[in-house]
Design a protein around this nucleic acid. Structure first.
Length: 749
DNA sequence: AGCACGCCGACT
DNA sequence: GTCGGCGTGCTC
C-alpha cells in the first residue's frame, strides 16, 4: 500500500511511501514518521491513495502516529491549495498546520539529534603516538569524544568550535560513529492556563445591547445569507467607528446557535485587543486566540482546544486561517485591506484570500470588513461577486472627524524648510491639551533622521550591504546609523568617509525626531512614541497602549501602527506630519496605501463623546489620494484609482506575479532574469493576455550583499502564468534557489 | 531544512 | 599535499 506524505521541507512536494502490511493504513491528515535521506521526519498524509504513480525509489514509513486525522482533512487540502496557488512546495505550508513545537523537521515528540561517539579504531588512532592522528581539529574532536562514553551531540561539538564537516570526515574514516538519537520529551508540560483561561459564563449578554438601524439592517441581510448555508462573500463596508465588531459578534453567535463555528481574522492581534477582548466577553471560554505574541506553550494549548472542538470561535492573525476548526460556518476578515494579511516570506500567501477559499470549501459566509476596502475586494463587490453591506454612520450618530489639509509649502515659505509642526497643528494640540483630551501624531518613518550627506562632496551615507541610505537612530552619544533592511549598524562618522569633509548633515525626519519636537513644543505634556523600535521588548506594546488608554500619555507619536483599529475614546485630534511619505514610491499601490492610511488614522479621532478633527500636513495637497482621504470619500477614490489600474494593467484589473532573481553580481542577476523572461515569452506567446515585463534591477538593487533583478508577469489566468513560470524554472533548475516568486504581490518593491 | 559531494584557497 | 569553507543538488 502506498501513501503520499507532505514533509516539512522547503519547496518539497509530497513524497510517496510504502505502508507495511502489518500497519493500519493512516487516514488523510494523520502524522507519520518517515525516513528522509539520513534522518527521520514527521510528515502529514496528504493522499491515502496516491493519485499519481510514484517516482523514484520508495521507502517504507517508519511509524504511524495517529489512527485518526491529526489535522482536519479540509485543512490539509487548504494547505495543498495554498502551496500550489502561491508557487510554493507543500513542505512550506505544512508547518503552518501544526501546533508550534510540532513544526519543523526536527521538532516533534520524536525529535532526533545526531550524536557522535568514538569507535575502537578512533581510540587506536588517538593512542598511536604521532601515528594516524589526523588534523589538530580532528584530534581535538577525538579527545573530547574519548572522554565521553556515550558520545557527544554534534551540536555540542559545534559549540566547541568543531565543525560538522570535521566530525563527518572522521566518520567517513571510521574513527567515530554517528547515530541518530530520538529524544522523547514532552514539550508541553505546564502549558496550561494563560490566555486559555477565562472560564465561566459570558460577562456580556449580546442580545441586550442596542444596535443602530444600520447595524440591525446589516445583520439581518447577513443572517439571511448565512441561513442559506451556502458559500458567499460579503464586503462589510463601514466607516471608522460604525460598529463592525458588534456585527461580527452577533454573526458568530448565530453560527454557534446553528451548530457551526466562526473564524475571525484580525491584522495584528496585539494591535486590536479590542476585538479579541470583545469576543472573550461574549463567548468566554469558548474562544481561542491564535497569534504570534503567545508563548509556544500557550499556542499549543489553544491549538489543542480548537482541535478537540472545545471552542466556537477562533480569533487570530493571518496564520489562524489554518486553524484546525471543523464545521466552519462564518469567517470574518477584519480590516481586510491590511497589508499584514500578506505573508512576506515563503509561502507568500494572503490570509484574506486563503480565508475565502476556505469559506468556499466549507460552505461558509465570509465577511470582509473595512472602512477602506482593498481595490481587489471592492472590484469584486462591484462585479457582483461579493455582497456589499454598507454602514455609512458612526454609532450613536457621532460625526466623522473634520479633516483639514495643511499645505506645507505655505508653511515653509513662512517659517523655513525646517519646520516640523505647522502653526495650525500646534494650535490644535495646545487646545486639546488644555481641554484634557488626547492627540495622535502620525509620521510613517522610523528613526531620527532618514539620511546623512556630506556638504562638501554630496556623498550620502549608505549601507555597505544594501543599496539604501542609513537611517540615524538616537541622539547625542547614542547616535547610530542603521540599515532598515539588513540591520547593519555603525557609529555615525565625524567626517565624510569619502572626502574627509567635516560637514556631515542629517536630513529627513523620523518618529524619534518628531517625538523630540513634540516634547520641545509642549514641555508639560506626556509624550509617548509607538513604532517598531519602541516595542522591541515583549509586552512593551501592550504597556504603551494601556498607558495611552488610561490617560497617562497626552500625545502619542508613531508610525502606521497608531492607525490600526484602536479605539481610544479620548482622542479628539489626529495630526499627520508628512502625508506624502510613501507617495514617492514607485509602487502601483502607493496611492491606495496612502488613502487607506490617512482615512484610517483620521478615523481614530472622535470615537468618544467629543467630536474629533484631523490635520494632514503635506507638500502635495492636490494629490487625489490625500484630497479624497480628507473628504473621506472612498467611492470617489476607488473610481479614480481603478481607472489607473485598468489603464496601466495592474491589479485588480489583471493578475500579477513578481519574480526576483538574486546573484552575487549585478550582471549575473540581470542575465538570469533576462533568460527567464525569454523563456516565459516563448511559453506565454500562445496564451493571449499574458505579458512579461522586464528584466529590470529590483528597486532595492542590492540587499544583504546580493544583487537583485526582477521581472513581472501580468495576465488574466494565474494558472497559465504559474505553469509558464514552473516550466521556465524547470528548464533552469540551477536558478531554482535564486528565484523568489510572489503571486498577487502586495508590493513590487 | 539537513545532509552529502565536490571545488578551491590557505597553510602545514 | 591536506584542511575545511562553501556553493550545488537531492530528499519518495
Amino acid at each position: 500500500l502506498l501513501i503520499r506524505v507532505a514533509v516539512p521541507v522547503p519547496a518539497l512536494d509530497p513524497l510517496t511511501y510504502a505502508v507495511p502490511d502489518e500497519c493500519d493504513p493512516p487516514p488523510l491528515g494523520a502524522r507519520v514518521i518517515v525516513p528522509l535521506g539520513a534522518r527521520l521526519v514527521t510528515g502529514i498524509v496528504v493522499e491515502p491513495i496516491p493519485d499519481a504513480p510514484a517516482r523514484g525509489q520508495i521507502r517504507r514509513i517508519d511509524r504511524v502516529l495517529d489512527d485518526r486525522p491529526f489535522v482536519p482533512a479540509e485543512v490539509v487540502q487548504l494547505a495543498r491549495w495554498t502551496a500550489e496557488y502561491y508557487a510554493a512546495g507543500v513542505g512550506d505550508t505544512i508547518p503552518m498546520l501544526l501546533p508550534p513545537m510540532a513544526r519543523g523537521s526536527r521538532a516533534d515528540a520524536h525529535k532526533t539529534i545526531r550524536v557522535a561517539a568514538i569507535t575502537p579504531a578512533g581510540l587506536e588512532a588517538l593512542a598511536a603516538v604521532g601515528g594516524s592522528v589526523p588534523t589538530p581539529r580532528q584530534r581535538e574532536a577525538l579527545e573530547l569524544l574519548a572522554g565521553s562514553a556515550s558520545g557527544l551531540a554534534i551540536r555540542t561539538l559545534a559549540a566547541r568550535g568543531i565543525s560538522v564537516d570535521a566530525v563527518l570526515r572522521l566518520a567517513r574514516q571510521g574513527l567515530v560513529s554517528v547515530r541518530h538519537d530520538r529524544i522523547d520529551r514532552d514539550p508541553f508540560s505546564g502549558a496550561a492556563g494563560g490566555a486559555a483561561g477565562a472560564g465561566g459564563a459570558p460577562t456580556i449578554e449580546l442580545a441586550t445591547r442596542q444596535l443602530t438601524e444600520e447595524q440591525a439592517a446589516a445583520i439581518e441581510r447577513l443572517r439571511a445569507i448565512a441561513a442559506t448555508g451556502a458559500f458567499r462573500v460579503a464586503l462589510l463596508h463601514g466607516v471608522t467607528g460604525s460598529g463592525k465588531t458588534e456585527i461580527y459578534l452577533r454573526l458568530a453567535a448565530m453560527a454557534r446557535d446553528g451548530g457551526r463555528r466562526a473564524l475571525v481574522l484580525v491584522p495584528e492581534i496585539s494591535l486590536t485587543p479590542a476585538v479579541a477582548g470583545q469576543f472573550r466577553q461574549a463567548f468566554a471560554a469558548r474562544v481561542a486566540i491564535q497569534h504570534s505574541g503567545l508563548s509556544d506553550g500557550e499556542r499549543h494549548d489553544q491549538w489543542q482546544r480548537i482541535r478537540r472542538g472545545d471552542v466556537d470561535v477562533v480569533v487570530g492573525t493571518r496564520s489562524a486561517v489554518f486553524a484546525p476548526l471543523e464545521r466552519v460556518g462564518l469567517i470574518v476578515v477584519d480590516e481586510e485591506h491590511d497589508p499584514s494579511y500578506k505573508q512576506d516570506e515563503i509561502p507568500r500567501y494572503n490570509g484574506r484570500d486563503v480565508a475565502i477559499v476556505r469559506g468556499r470549501r466549507a460552505g461558509a459566509l465570509v465577511v470582509l470588513g473595512s472602512a477602506t476596502p482593498s481595490m481587489e475586494t471592492y472590484y469584486n463587490a462591484m462585479a457582483g461577486r461579493y455582497e456589499r453591506v454598507v454602514l455609512e454612520r458612526r454609532v450613536f450618530d457621532r460625526p466623522l472627524p473634520a479633516v483639514t489639509i495643511v499645505d506645507m509649502r505655505e508653511e515653509y515659505a513662512e517659517a523655513g524648510p525646517e519646520v516640523v509642526l505647522s502653526r495650525r497643528l500646534r494650535a490644535a494640540v495646545t487646545r486639546r491639551l488644555d481641554e484634557g483630551e488626547q492627540a495622535l501624531v502620525l509620521l510613517n518613518r522610523r528613526g531620527f533622521s532618514t539620511s546623512v550627506f556630506c556638504r562638501q562632496c554630496a556623498e550620502t551615507l549608505d549601507c555597505p550591504n544594501c543599496s539604501v541610505s542609513l537611517v540615524v537612530h538616537g541622539e547625542g552619544a547614542a547616535r547610530r546609523a542603521r540599515c532598515h533592511y539588513c540591520n547593519y549598524a555603525t557609529r555615525l562618522p565625524l567626517a565624510c568617509p569619502l572626502c574627509g569633509g567635516p560637514f556631515l548633515e542629517a536630513s529627513g525626519l523620523g518618529t524619534q525626531r518628531l517625538e523630540a519636537e513634540v516634547k520641545k513644543a509642549w514641555p508639560g505634556a506626556r509624550v509617548g512614541r509607538l513604532d517598531r523600535d519602541a516595542i522591541r521588548r515583549r509586552g512593551a506594546l501592550a504597556e504603551l497602549l494601556s498607558r495611552f488608554r488610561d490617560g497617562k500619555i497626552d500625545v502619542l507619536v508613531g508610525t502606521q501602527m497608531i492607525a490600526k483599529g484602536h479605539d481610544f475614546p479620548r482622542v479628539t485630534l489626529v495630526g499627520v506630519i508628512s502625508a506624502d511619505v510613501g507617495l514617492g514610491l514607485a509602487d502601483f499601490r502607493a496611492s491606495e496605501r496612502t488613502f487607506q492610511l490617512l482615512t484610517q488614522v483620521a478615523g481614530r479621532a472622535g470615537r468618544g463623546a467629543q467630536p474629533g478633527e484631523a490635520l494632514i500636513q503635506t507638500l502635495y495637497p492636490d494629490h487625489y489620494s490625500i484630497r479624497l482621504a480628507c473628504d473621506q470619500n472612498y467611492r470617489a477614490f476607488y473610481a479614480r484609482e481603478v481607472k489607473f489600474r485598468e489603464a496601466m494593467r495592474y491589479p485588480p484589473a489583471v493578475a500579477l506575479v513578481n519574480v526576483v532573481v538574486r546573484a552575487s553580481t549585478f550582471a549575473g542577476a540581470l542575465d538570469a532574469a533576462s533568460d527567464l523572461v525569454q523563456r516565459l515569452r516563448r511559453m506565454t506567446a500562445p496564451g493571449p493576455g499574458t505579458r512579461v515585463l522586464g528584466p529590470a534591477p529590483a528597486p532595492i538593487g542590492r540587499l544583504r550583499g546580493e544583487y537583485r533583478a526582477q521581472l513581472l508577469i501580468k495576465g488574466n489566468s494565474r494558472r497559465r502564468m504559474r505553469e509558464a513560470l514552473q516550466a521556465a524554472l524547470g528548464e533552469r533548475p540551477d536558478l531554482q534557489r535564486r528565484v523568489v516568486v510572489d503571486v498577487d504581490p502586495i508590493s513590487v518593491l
